[in-house]
Nucleic acid binder design. Structure first.
Lengths: 208, 208, 208, 208
DNA sequence: TATGAATGAGTCTTCATTCAT
DNA sequence: CATGAATGAAGACTCATTCAT
């Protein structure tokens, strides 16, 4: 019975994911899902207590991962690395960041799609906004600390600039996914992206 | 009666705009609007023949402006200017572009909000996607022509890079609006943005 | 001013007739009519105090004519003629009837269409039913009188038979109109119809 | 639950039928039906996915029967029987036809009412028209074949005559139903009807 | 676990008609 | 005479959710 239950649950999750992906949260009805799985609508409520919870469940692993990443990355410990980066000696740092997000793409492609542009109507419709906000906050704290430690580096004009780059990264991911880029084009796009960010930030920080 | 008519019409448009802004197209009902204006639901249909038309009406001026901008900007005539830009002599070109989009922001702040992230459910829900796609197309054509004329300039790796920058511009606008930046912060953000794009593109194009 | 008024009224009537003909009473809206005439909806109410009244007005002449025909035909005076008819000597009697109805067709083609199968939803939707009912009644009275006078003629079994022939005549007219028969086919159809009725009725009445 | 379901379904169908009969398809609202049955409007949609489908369901058996009758009757095999009929030797043939339609009346009285004059607004509003048209077509083909085989029989003047008799048959049925004739009067009416058709057609066909 | 019945609030839209001007 | 604004009731249908079994 446990077996059967898990099987149905899995089916619900799998099919719901596909439909949410295709039509978005708001335009997907419980009926659509139930019909696709071949069960009664009300049976879904034996597994998830609402449409919203079902959606959150599908997107759950991605969110966990995102939270983890936020906690890990934006700690104040590796400011030395940042100095090396800012002075052009450590191209690998931003690259690492991006590579990690690319790993995200490969592992959570569908969930990202859902969260990034199919979540309207759900309780997660503002999640990405809030997430970037928080990230930006952390970055700002990091920069404050950094500026205190290394006062002769250039100063960014406005916090918004940090914010927008946060957003852009997600948009970059979002667009890569949306257009189903082939692997090699993804690589080239990332290379362009990294180079852009590197040179851009260096210019902003008035290095040298 | 003429007076009264225009007044009510204005009220409908104004209130609808506010509600759309707050709740989005899909979650806004004609009842909401009617109740807010203090009229019967059916009376709205004396002014606009559908919810969608009402939305398009509100957003109409913005769309006209966007179409105009696309027509005007992306013509193949000013490639000489572009050369000067690419070689670092004409910082004003991109700046002009961006300034124009800033004008957009100031004149169409609400409409942009609506079009950028409150249009789901309406017939315009894909407008921005299609618009960026089209713009990207025009840019690509422009670049093809450019490469034939000036073959010794660097070549961008992938069309997607053009695309993503198109998207980013809209994201930039979108975020500026979403966070209701004060005027001076907008200016500083733009300056950062322009500098970023300048140095980034030059790096990409002058590769050897 | 009188001129102008009459002109508009005429336009309303004319256009309404066309739309009623095409879509039927129920599926025609006042808006349709107003739009077609190029006036405001409410202006129609200056001429007719409801959609129903408008319809009745259009169909009025036909109704007047029908009432007149009923009064004239079914009087008890020409029973002698009927005897001649029943004994096969006066083929012209039924023929006269039908010819009169054919005149109706030519003079009131559109109105008949309206009354016969486009009146559903109006207060006249049962008019034809009631009319045939009344006609049948009159015929029955006529036949009762006739049977008293000429007891040796055959007796029709059931009043319903009279009724159904009344109905059939209208259906005949209705179908002639509905199929827009060319003149000569109408003639042949009528000839068949008359012959049919003649021989049929004689058989029913056991003449000879 | 099975029990309850069937009960409600039956109630819906039964009540809907009555209301449709009384007010016609167009003037019957789902609310009317729901209220009559004592359930919520949306519950009806658990049984029938639209008002039209509900109507078609009610009228379904009748339509199946009509289709069957058309398929069975109008085959070209029994032309010999028809010769016997035409020459006055086989009164049973038409009689059989009519008897079958009488069976229709007894088994599908309400459905016939619905289909014949309460279907306006539904997808079946033209069904009877199309059905008669098709039947007429089949009869015409039959007659063509017949005329080639037996060229010395009289020729009917116009196809419209066949058509009108098709229509009349339905009108006959329609009127029988509309007036709720008692059984014996139905029988007498049919006898009149058959005799009428017999003598009429013989007259038309044996014209030298 | 799974079902299908049932709910009730909600959706946009249409319509004939009336009112004020 | 003519207008356009305004009304209010009504239309079919959808949806997430709960209930009884």
């Amino acid at each position: 019975m446990q077996v059967k239950k898990d099987y149905t649950r899995e089916q619900i999750v799998e099919f719901a994911k596909q439909v949410f992906l295709k039509n978005g949260y708001a335009k997907t009805s419980m009926r659509d899902i139930a019909k696709g799985v071949g069960i009664g609508v009300s049976n879904i409520y034996n597994y998830f207590k609402s449409k919203d919870e079902l959606f959150r469940h599908i997107v759950g692993p991605l969110i966990a991962e995102l939270e983890r990443m936020m906690r890990e990355h934006h700690n104040v410990d590796n400011q030395d690395g940042f100095v090396r980066y800012a002075s052009g000696e450590a191209d690998d740092m931003l690259a690492d960041h991006v590579k990690e997000y690319m790993r995200l793409i490969n592992n959570h492609r569908d969930e990202l799609k859902l969260l990034l542009y199919q979540s309207q109507g759900s309780s997660l419709e503002n999640y990405i906004d809030e997430y970037t906000e928080e990230c930006t906050h952390l970055v700002l704290e990091f920069m404050d600390e950094f500026k205190r430690k290394f006062p002769d580096y250039g100063v960014i004009h406005t916090p918004f600039t940090y914010h927008i780059h946060m957003v852009w990264m997600f948009n970059f991911i979002s667009e890569v996914i949306k257009h189903d880029l082939p692997a090699d084009e993804i690589r080239r796009a990332i290379e362009d992206y990294i180079q852009f960010e590197f040179t851009g930030w260096r210019a902003l920080m008035n290095v040298k």
